[in-house]
Amino acid sequence: MPQKTMPKVLRASAVSFGLLAMLLSGCGSTLGKAKQTAAVSQKVYASVEAETVKQIAAIIEKDRSGTITKDDKDRLVILNDLRKVLDKFADAHNAYVAGLKVWEDSKTKPTDLDDLSMKMLEIVKDAQDLAKRLGIRVR
């Protein structure tokens, strides 16, 4: 698919997930840094998720009104893949935030927090792979 016609949400997600990957790779050193990473994660997720939901809903509406096109269906394939990645990311993000709560309350870093951030990093890579499959060049 040509880059020009790429749904803007996907190109945006490629870049912003790249930023998240940078943050996640070194986020667990202090509680403050980990909380900032979670805050950025939430902002990026919310922006990309809202656009994804909006675009999927618009295509579903076109299907209901009988005006859906082949391009819409092709776009829905991409958006549906992104939806699944976002769902996995939401689970990992929420678990990470819950882990930070434990850290904040107990003053002790949970042992599985680094594993969680690595899991988030893996999911970010899934998102990057998705973008790459669509012809988006990301690092």
Partner: peptide, 10 residues
Amino acid sequence: LDKLYVTKAT
């Protein structure tokens, strides 16, 4: 932290 939870796209 309580304000950082997100909802799934689904």
